[in-house]
Amino acid sequence: MGFKLLSKLLVYLTASIMAIASPLAFSVDSSGEYPTVSEIPVGEVRLYQIADGVWSHIATQSFDGAVYPSNGLIVRDGDELLLIDTAWGAKNTAALLAEIEKQIGLPVTRAVSTHFHDDRVGGVDVLRAAGVATYASPSTRRLAEVEGNEIPTHSLEGLSSSGDAVRFGPVELFYPGAAHSTDNLIVYVPSASVLYGGCAIYELSRTSAGNVADADLAEWPTSIERIQQHYPEAQFVIPGHGLPGGLDLLKHTTNVVKAHTNRSVVE
């Protein structure tokens, strides 16, 4: 069995187990497998329904001669939608809004960016022009300005110390501490036991640490421990890039980060 097929099978099995364990909360999309990078042309966006009122959005972007996937989250909030992270750029984010209108038909009224990198804030200006209120932590807003990236308009308070959590509509926002970046936030959907790890969490097929220019490698494993301790009931975990899975993604990420750190020390 090929690795790609095995990865998709694991996603399907995880979703099936969740649907059985929580039949009222989960209505997993039966329309197909989780979209992969090879299936999404740059400039297009796919939506994948995880649970009743919960979707991931998947886009792709060219970077350094390669094409990478990027995940975000959409959560229903009454007759409105909360968006977590842009679709990595203005063109993708405009396509995301169009796809949401086509498939869901509810307005996106608020959006949260989970850290300051372009795959999370690139497209904020498109959201703002569409009347979406954009939010991020003060740290993310400051770092985005320093980096020359787009800056969300509103500040999220109460997320300055490791372990801080605040309720934001249908989700809980959690600051686990520094990891992929010093400002990275985690998003949890309690009604569906869905954990969105953003770039602080890796997919299972990833074996290298990737972009760690703004990471705190020493603190990252401790931050992941905080996530595990705060959300032990999480059933569906979405990484910032690639295929979702279960809580095993947290341990896998820790292993990859520690291996990278150990290699760096040896070198």
Rank of each mutant, 00 (worst) to 15 (best):
V28W: 12
V257C: 06
R110E: 08
H260F: 06
S56C: 10
V166W: 07
S139D: 12
Y48C: 12
P138F: 07
R263W: 06
T140A: 04
L81I: 14
R128Q: 08
A19M: 15
R76C: 04
D77W: 08
Y175K: 02
D216Q: 12
H57T: 06
A129L: 14
F116D: 03
S16M: 05
W88M: 02
V257T: 06
G240C: 00
F116H: 15
T253F: 01
L250C: 04
N92K: 13
A59C: 08
E219R: 10
G148R: 11
S181V: 03
H230T: 10
I84G: 02
L81A: 12
D164S: 13
N211V: 11
R226A: 11
G72I: 00
H154W: 14
V257W: 02
E233V: 13
T114C: 00
S70A: 11
A129E: 09
A259F: 06
L81R: 02
G242K: 03
G72F: 04
P69W: 11
P239K: 00
E80V: 14
A66Q: 13
V189M: 06
P239W: 00
A51H: 06
H260C: 08
S7C: 06
V124I: 15
A130V: 10
L243K: 10
E147T: 12
R76H: 06
P41H: 08
V37W: 09
S27N: 05
T253P: 00
S70T: 15
P41I: 14
F63Q: 05
S155W: 11
G240E: 03
G43A: 13
V265I: 10
Q229K: 14
N262V: 09
N71P: 00
D29A: 08
S193A: 10
G210W: 04
G72T: 00
I201Y: 01
E99M: 14
V265M: 05
A259W: 13
F174E: 00
G123S: 03
A259Q: 14
I238Q: 02
E99H: 14
S139V: 10
L47A: 04
L5Y: 15
F236P: 04
S22F: 06
L159E: 02
R128G: 10
A192I: 05
S181I: 00
S155H: 14
N255V: 09
S31C: 11
E145N: 10
A51N: 15
A66E: 11
V266H: 14
L13T: 14
S27C: 08
V265L: 09
L159G: 01
A218H: 15
R142P: 02
R46A: 14
E219A: 13
P244F: 05
S30H: 13
S205A: 09
P232N: 07
P244I: 06
I104G: 00
E44R: 12
A19T: 12
P41E: 11
R226L: 11
P107F: 06
F168C: 03
F116Y: 15
F3C: 05
R120E: 04
P107V: 11
Y202P: 02
E80I: 15
R263I: 05
T153H: 08
I100N: 02
S223P: 04
V194M: 06
T222N: 10
V237R: 01
G246T: 08
A178M: 10
I104D: 00
V257N: 05
A165D: 09
V28A: 07
D164C: 04
L243C: 06
